[in-house]
């Protein structure tokens, strides 16, 4: 819903916002791309930013692979595309509790499709509802706040905190760069900082137990 409100209040026309919601179906990538679309950033910068925001799904798909490796590729592609943070977390919880049903693929397809319907309905409600709200209310700021709400809870591990801090500082310093490239410099600096922090943590005793 927030992605819907933020898209329309950020200046996207209602049909474009609905199309984006239906096709992209990734709230954080949409929210991340939105300020760049409004600022008229180059197309590749916008798409690359969405791509980096989506990179966590690569890990998810690697974790899901063992469960679906025997399915035909069309089914794997469909299950993958409709997987989200929520449905992935739900799946892994059931997997850890050993409570996955026999037809894991059908069950997961059910979880994903009901999540898709709920998400799309609330996004479209947000899109249409927001188009009736005056711009002076400043509702576009809900997009930024939603990103704060996404980032906040993940700032528990030290690499995440160091990475986010480095990303923020570099993004501020590099802000005057053209094409919103400061955003990239910030993201890259943050990823490097997070990886280094993780490497230092792995080496220093007591080494945390490795989960696999």
């Amino acid at each position: 819903m927030i992605s819907g409100v933020a898209m329309v209040k950020g200046g996207l026309a209602v049909p474009w916002a609905i199309m984006m919601s239906l096709l992209v179906y990734a709230g954080s990538a949409q929210l991340a791309a939105l300020p760049l679309i409004v600022a008229g950033a180059p197309l590749w910068v916008i798409v690359a930013t969405g791509l980096i925001t989506n990179l966590r799904f690569v890990i998810y798909s690697a974790a899901l692979r063992p469960y679906f490796v025997d399915l035909p590729w069309q089914k794997r592609a469909a299950l993958g595309f409709f997987m989200t943070d929520f449905t992935f977390t739900r799946f892994m919880r059931s997997a850890q509790e050993d409570s996955l049903p026999v037809r894991t693929d059908a069950w997961f397809a059910g979880v994903c499709s009901s999540n898709w319907i709920t998400w799309q309905l609330s996004a479209i409600t947000g899109i249409i509802g927001a188009s009736y709200v005056p711009t002076e209310w400043g509702l576009e700021f809900t997009g930024t706040l939603a990103l704060v709400a996404l980032v906040g809870p993940s700032l528990t591990a030290r690499p995440a905190i160091v990475g986010a801090a480095a990303a923020a500082v570099v993004a501020l310093v590099a802000y005057p760069l053209p094409f919103k490239l400061g955003l990239f410099c910030g993201a890259i600096a943050g990823i490097v900082a997070a990886t280094l922090t993780d490497a230092v943590e792995q080496r220093s005793p007591p080494a945390p137990a490795e989960e696999t």
């Binding site: 991340a32 990475g163 923020a168 400061g182």
Partner: peptide
């Protein structure tokens, strides 16, 4: 995996803070 895991947080921080 570490780089992929922290990439979204870093990108979003680079967007939100400015």
């Amino acid at each position: 995996e570490v780089a992929l895991r922290y990439a979204p947080v870093c990108t979003l921080a680079a967007i939100i803070v400015p």
